[in-house]
Amino acid sequence: MNRHVLPLILMMALGASAEGCASFHMNTPAGFAELGDNDDFAYRATNAEGVVVAVRSERNPLRGNLEFWSGAVSERLRAQGYTADGAPRPVQNASGLAGTQLRFARESNGRTLRYWVTVFVREGGGRVYLVEAGGDREVFDRATPAVERAIAGFST
C-alpha cells in the first residue's frame, strides 16, 4: 500500500510545485469583470466598453530573457501592422520583477485600437508572462488609470 501511495503523493507534490511556478496574481480592475481563462490566457477581464486585460503565462522553451522576448514580440507585432506608440518602457511588477511595456496602436475598420503588452520573464528563464491590454482608443484612454493600476499590481 505504502509503495503505491508514496509515488502518488510525490507526483502530486511535484505537480503542485510546477503549478506554483506558473502562478501569478492579478487584481481585477474596478469596473471590469473576469472572463475566466481559455487556451490562450490564464486570466482575462473586460469592462463594459470592451477594454480587455489578460495575462498569458507561458513556458519558455527557448530560455530567452526579457530582452529577447520583448524584442521578439515587438518585431512580430510591427510586422503585422502595429505601430509603436512610444518607446518600450521599463516597468516593475508588485513582486519586484522587471519587465518591459510595449505600447502599440493599430487601425482597424476606421478605428484606432490601442494594444499594450507588458513582458515579464521569470528569473532563470523558466516562464514568460505577457500582461496584455487593448481596446478602442477612446474607451481605452478612459480606462487607462485602471489598467495601469492592474498591471502595477500584477505579481508572480
Partner: peptide
C-alpha cells in the same frame, strides 16, 4: 516589409489584438 520573426513557439504566433479582444471564448 520587414520579415516577421517566427519562432517554434506556438503561443508566440498567437500574440495580438485578435485573440485578446475575442471575448466569446
Amino acid at each position: 516589409p520587414r520579415r516577421a520573426i517566427d519562432l517554434p513557439v506556438e503561443w508566440f504566433r498567437r500574440v495580438g489584438l485578435e485573440r485578446l479582444l475575442d471575448t466569446r471564448e
